[in-house]
């Protein structure tokens, strides 16, 4: 009888996360010679966004890859550090955290919730979009901006003078089309695959924030797996992570190019100086949210990426 790991996620099979899950399944089943069977359930087939965390805790599924914003409601607000605008200046900065000791330390905080974090998977850096050009922070004043549920993103939009509007992902396209909300933020892959660029006149390549996932497992379940098999699985996960990050980066680049090529929305690329104006306004969120996230943790992240503040 093989050990069955139910791996549930909420996106389509052909997204970077979906492909990485399939890749992990392949590696894990090969390397354990069939001692482990991974059943991947994509597209929220079994559990939806709002259910999967509880489903993992009570053992209905064994493995998930939720977005990092999902950990704050679980009670580990430290993960909100990833949502802070302009905390990473690119993939190099990001990987110093996600592949380094600070990232590891954060994952360890999940243990008290009965969860083990195995790896971080990237999606990408976000762009802003709206029906008016967003060149300076002042352009956001009074705009209704869709966000996913997150106190940090809420604060980010408020600092910009916009009205944050929490809305389910499935509703966003129509809300943008009809004008219930004026704009949103997304990594290019979502902007393109959800066709949101068709209903947004301007896209600003701001790379202001990061969207990523963590692969997590039920702690009790994982610790019952024999050590040698667990080591093989961890190896497979490490390789799947490299794969996940590289296809995510590639996909975002391709999709940004496709959005540009479509001509349906005008692409605004910020100059160094313009980006600095955004950054100067938005770093205020770091200090505003320091009490929630932990000032020490924010400092640790600064140090890990080599920023002196």
């Amino acid at each position: 009888e093989p050990i069955v790991i139910k791996f549930s996620h909420v996106v389509a099979v052909d997204t970077p996360k979906g492909q990485a899950a399939e890749y992990f399944k392949k590696l894990a089943e090969e390397r354990t010679n069939g001692a482990v069977k991974i059943e991947v359930y994509p597209n929220s087939q079994l559990y939806k966004d709002k259910e999967e965390m509880e489903a993992l805790q009570i053992g209905s599924v064994q493995m998930l890859a939720p977005s990092l914003a999902k950990f704050a409601p679980l009670g580990v607000k430290e993960f909100e550090v990833f949502d802070l605008p302009f905390i990473f200046d690119g993939y190099d900065d990001l990987h110093k955290v996600t592949l380094g000791p600070v990232g590891k330390k954060l994952l360890n905080k999940l243990e008290v919730k009965g969860i083990l974090g195995l790896a971080y998977w990237d999606n990408g850096f976000k762009v802003m979009s709206a029906n008016k050009p967003l060149k300076t922070p002042a352009d956001f004043k009074g705009l209704k901006m869709r966000i996913q549920s997150s106190k940090i993103l809420d604060a980010q939009m408020r600092v910009l003078g916009a009205i944050p509007q929490v809305m389910a992902f499935s509703e966003v396209y129509q809300a943008l089309q009809t004008g219930v909300v004026d704009g949103t933020e997304n990594p290019p892959s979502n902007l393109y695959t959800q066709k949101m660029f068709e209903v947004q006149k301007y896209v600003t390549v701001s790379n202001h924030g990061f969207l990523g996932y963590a692969v997590i497992v039920n702690k009790k379940f994982w610790e019952k797996i024999p050590v040698e098999i667990r080591t093989q699985l961890e190896g497979a996960m490490a390789d799947a992570t490299v794969f996940a990050n590289s296809i995510a980066k590639q996909k975002n680049q391709e999709d940004l190019a496709s959005v540009k090529a479509s001509g349906k929305s005008e692409m605004i690329v910020l100059s160094e100086q313009e980006r600095k104006v955004w950054k100067d306004v938005l770093v205020k969120v770091h200090t505003d949210m320091a009490d929630r996230i932990g000032a020490d943790l924010i400092q640790e992240v600064y140090q890990a990426i080599g920023v002196k503040k």
Binding site: A72, P73, L74, G75, K113, G114, S149, K151, V166
Partner: peptide, 13 residues
């Protein structure tokens, strides 16, 4: 282990 809180109101679920 403390349980989750709701994302927006942050009350225990």
């Amino acid at each position: 282990t403390s349980g989750p809180v709701s994302p927006d109101l942050e009350w225990p679920v």
